[in-house]
Write a protein that binds this DNA or RNA. Structure first.
Lengths: 226, 226
DNA sequence: ACCTGAACACCGTTCAAGT
DNA sequence: ACCTGAACACCGTTCAAGT
């Protein structure tokens, strides 16, 4: 049979775009080489011409999604710049719910990931932070620099809410968790559970850390001699 | 053939203990139902009598490892107590390198996980923190409450160090990353890479956050009215 | 140069049977 | 009550062949 002329040729770009769309709609767990191939109307092995293996596919997906971020925009001062940049990254991660888990599992930073970090680090260095302080400060931000926290789960099928009986049992066994969670209006979600990492939580923690960073810097923090 | 009397009977405890030991020595990726069964000299399906599925196995492994932590020990004040507790958890995670990834992927908290969080939350509440502040403060700690950060990878096969040529290329493309990393004496490790999340880094960030928490509390922080 | 087909070495898990 | 064996529906990836 002659190749169907109506069928678009495969390309790395087409593979990655399809993979991102597939993950957006079906979740990361559904992304397999075989299913992606089926989605593209192609035999599994056809993908390997454009992507060396599954890890490379995930790298490419991360790069493609991160490209949506665009260049860093300077604000009034380092604090506002870093804050806005991180909140923008957070919005990206909320648009692509699978991205957090992909970033977490990259054994090496992709160039796009490095470029993102470079742009953040640049803000601190240009604002007079020492290289040592910049280094520690980036560690203090940790994954929050990417706009996510451990709470932001990518669970495709959230667990059903516990029954009233279970709730009573839980709050007897773990009274402090219950009291603390109750205040936030979601007794059904545990501290590091999913669902309560809303904008307010994220900004509270981010500002707390930015305050700490500002304090270290204005106090002229220096690395301990050893 | 009669059952070999010398062969110890399987039990949930024996399965979990073997799984923990197996993960300790071979890494998490090596833990499969089939390989664990082979390790126990048993057919794969024999495990399912003691553990309902693989997720339950991972839950059990987490519980067993976390049990090593023991009860919380009170120190001079909330700050010292929380600090010591978190550093103890960190040491546990360093002993069981697979545990971080298992904790991260639990869709629901196991009872042992909840008990750990409960003990931490109790410290804040007993020290006069409001429930609302306690809630936000636990979020600010995030995964650091478990003694890990995004930097603490469980990579069984660390990537080879880049060649000098690659290093030069990298530092030209990402000058700020290079400058910042250089100061810490490990140009070969990127910011969120593995290997530089040493004790000092962790304590720097932890203390920065504890400072922020102490500041919020002594300032009488209250949730915004809405 | 790009895609295909069959095969290999793995998974987790079900079902029906053995002791 | 506990373990077994064969089977099912999946994986990622190799190799040799087609066009």
């Amino acid at each position: 049979m002659p190749p169907d002329p109506a069928r678009e040729r495969l390309s790395r770009e087409r593979v990655l775009t399809a993979a991102v769309a597939f993950a957006d709609t079906h979740g990361l767990d559904a992304v397999s080489m075989r299913r992606l191939a089926a989605d593209l109307d192609v035999v599994p092995m056809a993908l390997y011409k454009h992507v060396s293996d599954k890890e490379a596919l995930l790298d490419g997906m991360a790069d493609l999604a991160l490209a949506e971020l665009g260049p860093l925009v300077d604000q009034d001062d380092w604090r506002a710049t870093v804050r806005a940049r991180i909140l923008a990254a957070r919005e990206l991660l909320l648009r692509h719910r699978w991205l957090r888990r992909v970033l977490e599992t990259r054994p090496r930073q992709t160039p796009t990931m490095l470029a993102y970090l470079d742009s953040l680090i640049a803000v601190f260095r240009r604002s007079g932070f020492s290289d040592a302080l910049t280094h520690h400060v980036m560690h203090a931000l940790g994954s929050r620099a990417w706009g996510f926290t451990q709470e932001l789960f990518d669970d495709p099928n959230p667990a059903p809410p516990p029954s009233p009986e279970q709730l009573i049992q839980l709050s007897q066994a773990f009274p402090h968790v219950a009291a603390m969670a109750g205040v936030a209006g979601h007794v059904d979600e545990s501290v590091v559970g999913r669902g309560c990492d809303d904008q307010f939580e994220f900004e509270f923690a981010l500002d707390l850390i930015l305050d700490g960073i500002a304090e270290r810097q204005s106090a002229g923090w220096e690395p301990p001699v050893r």
